[in-house]
Design a protein around this nucleic acid. Structure first.
Length: 252
DNA sequence: AATATGCCCAACCGCGATTCC
DNA sequence: TGGAATCGCGGTTGGGCATAT
């Protein structure tokens, strides 16, 4: 079978780190850098494996970590990035300074997924739940493995009705030269809105995202909302989502 | 007040990718 | 060039805390 775990090699400590261990690790890395992780525990005087030391440093001890609750902007960005990248937590984390992939992954699994579901959106596909349910979709991480991530090349990735993600045109101007493709539309749909398309410029593209919003159509009039505002509205309108749109307007 | 249940999050595990020798 | 060592990622687990009963 697979490679055996480093924890089996010798009597190494497992579980939560003590303040003393943290102190040793921080002291060692601040003085010498981490170098080769497998040699860190020995040099730092720790009964841990290198892998555990690396994880502890990256997820908890690094001085540039932000910690604390996620801001609304961060939350928006995670949702947007997840829609584009799927469960590529390290890539998502790279776009959120001071946050770790583990932290984002946990936040997604414990909080954002739930929030999206409450708003009637499948957190795996970012499609309306009624749509995914009709295709025999369900829940859970397992599905994410089935190449069902949006942004991982699924050509079938369509959008919730009446919701258009848009990028403000101004963002496509001077500071972002060289973008050779049109306005992105994660959630196309509505009146013939776009399919989910992007090319290798996806990361450049995502740099435009923070000011992007959601366009909802109320009584035929488009209204621009921030993604977070859309989500909150959607959650409030949760109960009738299947029959009505997020603001209670009947579908069909 | 005691117990059960649910949730959050730090840490572990397994595996593919990359680097080293 | 191939095998071993190491790194890094994403999924999963389990301990501890909060809330419900």
């Amino acid at each position: 079978m697979g490679k055996h775990s480093c924890y089996h090699k010798q009597k190494l400590r497992k579980g939560l780190w003590s303040p003393e261990e943290d102190e040793k690790l921080v002291k060692h890395i601040s003085q010498h850098g981490h170098g080769c992780w497998s040699s860190v525990p020995k040099l730092a005087g720790l009964q841990r494996c290198g892998k555990s030391c690396r994880l502890r440093w990256i997820n908890y001890l690094r001085p540039d970590l932000k910690r604390g609750t996620f801001s609304q902007q961060e939350e928006d960005l995670i949702i947007e990035l997840h829609a584009a990248l799927g469960n590529r937590w390290s890539q998502i984390a790279a776009r959120l300074p001071g946050r770790t992939d583990n932290e984002i992954k946990n936040y997604w699994n414990s909080c954002l997924k739930k929030k999206l579901k409450q708003s009637g959106i499948d957190p795996n596909t970012h499609k309306p739940l009624c749509e995914t349910a009709s295709r025999g979709g369900g829940d859970g991480v397992k599905e994410a493995k089935n190449n069902d991530n949006p942004g991982s090349g699924n050509p079938d990735f369509l959008a919730p009705n009446a919701v258009n993600m848009y990028a403000e045109e101004t963002l496509l101007q001077p500071q972002n030269p060289g973008l050779g493709f049109g306005l992105p539309s994660i959630y196309g749909g509505g009146n013939g809105g776009g399919e989910f398309e992007f090319d290798s410029g996806i990361l450049q593209w995502l740099e435009l995202m923070p000011n992007k919003g959601v366009q909802v159509h109320l009584d035929g009039e488009p209204e621009d909302l921030k993604w977070s505002e859309y989500l909150n509205g959607a959650i409030a309108a949760n109960e009738s989502f299947q029959e009505r749109d997020i603001y209670g307007k009947e579908l069909h």
